[in-house]
Amino acid sequence: MSRIVVQEFVTLDGVAQAPGGSEEDLADGFEHGGWQMDYDAVHDRDDEGGPIIMDWESRTEALLLGRKTYEIWAGAWGVWDEHEPGSMGELTRTYNRVPKHVASRTLTELGWKNSHLLGDDVPTAVQKLREEPGGEIRVWGSLNLIRTLGAHDLVDQYRLAVYPIVLGTGKKLFAEGFRTSTFDVVESRVLKSGVIITVLRRRNE
């Protein structure tokens, strides 16, 4: 059986919108794009977080993405050079190789290799993916999709890098209306940068 694992960079007030770049997601006039990258540039100069992310990604057997995140990733990882040295090339090779399952009501075809549309019934399609033999199916970004997955109890684990920042605006990982949930803390540690690594598993009650 496979596992659905959500990974996100989030602020103290739960914002997970556009952590990696100023143009990543401008919805609702969001003006803090790149907040995670900017913080790390100042406070994580030793790149303590880098090996953690690479360890997480080494377990990725497939990607599960919403439309917006898919289009951002297809225009980045989908075209970057696989022979780039270091983590950039390693991640590019990984993301090109693994299957990519995409939830979308508007896309009819996908240009990034090994990409597949989930169809109209996303919860049922994801449940079938979970039932197949395999490892971790990784979710990054894709906040609307995560809300759907949460509503149908389809997330096996959340891996969060919680940044000591309050933005006061932006799309939240657990937005209003999210299914009431209780979690077991699998892991929690504080990096020298002040970022808190927290791994959560939904408690069956």
Rank of each mutant, 00 (worst) to 15 (best):
Y158D: 01
L117I: 06
E176N: 12
D120I: 00
V166W: 04
Y158V: 08
G135L: 06
D28R: 14
E57Y: 13
K113S: 15
G170F: 07
A74I: 02
L118P: 07
Q7C: 04
M54C: 00
A161G: 10
V155Y: 00
D121K: 05
V10E: 03
N204V: 05
N114K: 15
T69D: 00
T69M: 08
H116L: 01
K172R: 15
E109C: 09
D28K: 13
E131T: 12
F30H: 15
G34C: 10
L167P: 09
E136P: 01
H43P: 07
T169Y: 02
A27N: 08
W35T: 14
D184P: 08
L191F: 11
Q157R: 15
I53Y: 10
E8A: 15
Y163W: 05
E132K: 15
G34M: 10
G119Q: 12
P99G: 12
S115G: 09
S104R: 01
A27F: 07
R147K: 15
D156V: 06
V98K: 07
E109M: 09
G177P: 07
D47F: 15
S87I: 04
M1Y: 13
E90L: 08
Y70E: 08
D156H: 08
L91K: 11
D121A: 08
G50M: 13
K68L: 14
H83A: 04
E90A: 13
D120Y: 00
S188G: 09
T94R: 15
V10L: 05
G150D: 14
L160Q: 01
D44V: 10
S22L: 08
F183R: 02
R59M: 05
L110G: 03
N144S: 07
T11W: 07
L65E: 02
E23C: 06
L167M: 03
P123E: 10
G177T: 06
I197F: 03
V10S: 03
R147C: 05
W73I: 13
L91A: 05
P99I: 01
A27W: 04
Q7R: 14
V122F: 05
P133E: 14
L107D: 04
R67K: 12
R202T: 03
L173M: 09
D13N: 07
A125L: 06
W140F: 10
E82M: 06
G50H: 08
T148E: 11
M1V: 13
G34K: 11
V5H: 03
V10F: 03
L129G: 09
T180N: 09
G75M: 06
A151W: 00
T92I: 03
T69K: 03
W140T: 11
R159E: 13
D44P: 05
R67A: 10
R202P: 14
D13S: 10
E84P: 03
I146Y: 10
T108E: 11
L64H: 03
R97L: 02
D184E: 14
V5Q: 06
E61V: 10
E24M: 13
G14D: 05
N144V: 00
P51V: 01
V10T: 12
F174K: 01
